[in-house]
Amino acid sequence: MRIVVDLNRCQGYAQCVYLAHEVFRLNGQEALTYEPNPDDQRRLQVERAAAACPVQAIVIDRLDGEERGETS
């Protein structure tokens, strides 16, 4: 799984941090950092965090072969 956060769109509401604190972190009051390739074990947390983003700044991409269960 690969995630991308549009940091220009992100407003620092930090809903993602509350729902997936091992993937998303808030440095200071508004500087969001994140793990771009989290473990698949975190998929549900990341999907919930993306859905909770008020400005829809989080995009989740599948890596090649992921849909078929293949590994690179």
Rank of each mutant, 00 (worst) to 15 (best):
P38A: 09
L7D: 04
A20S: 12
Q11L: 12
E30G: 03
E66G: 01
P36D: 01
A57H: 13
R43S: 08
P36T: 00
N8G: 13
Q56E: 09
D61G: 13
A14L: 08
V59D: 08
R48I: 13
A51H: 02
Q29D: 09
H21Y: 12
C53P: 10
F24M: 10
G12H: 00
C16R: 03
G65N: 00
L32I: 06
N27V: 15
L7I: 04
R25F: 12
A51G: 03
E47R: 02
V55D: 09
L44K: 15
R2Q: 13
C53I: 04
C10I: 07
R25D: 07
E47C: 00
M1F: 05
L63A: 07
A14M: 05
A31H: 15
V4G: 12
H21T: 12
A50R: 07
V5A: 07
Q29T: 15
R9W: 10
L19F: 03
R68F: 14
T33M: 04
C53R: 06
T71C: 05
G28P: 04
A20F: 03
C53G: 04
N8P: 11
N37G: 05
A52E: 06
A49C: 03
I3Y: 11
R25N: 14
V17T: 01
Y13R: 08
L7H: 01
R68M: 12
N27S: 15
Q29A: 08
V17I: 01
L32K: 06
A50C: 02
L63H: 02
V55Y: 05
R2F: 10
V5N: 07
R25A: 14
R9M: 04
E67H: 11
P54M: 02
